[in-house]
């Protein structure tokens, strides 16, 4: 059983959005954090474990024609 994920704080979201150069200002992050949080909690990568050697489902097609 993995350790519970740390709470997704406003500071963490601000750091990630800052690294992404998203131009979302701190006031807006504070205002919208309750809407961001459930979406981002859902996407935490440990939700999908265990994955072992499973490859991703992608749609790249190497054919030229």
């Amino acid at each position: 059983m993995p350790d519970p994920a740390p709470a997704l704080t406003e500071d963490i979201v601000a750091t990630v959005l800052g690294f992404a150069r998203s131009n979302v200002d701190p006031e807006r992050i504070a205002d919208k954090i309750d809407q961001y949080r459930p979406l981002l909690e859902m996407s935490r990568s440990d939700v999908f474990r265990p994955l072992g050697e499973i490859p991703p489902a992608t749609a790249f097609n190497a054919r030229w024609e």
């Binding site: 996407s43 994955l51 489902a57």
Partner: peptide, 19 residues
Amino acid sequence: EAGEAVLATSYINALRSRT
């Protein structure tokens, strides 16, 4: 904006989960 904060590894793991 929320999508900007989804990690690449989360996205790829979602695709692996899809497999």
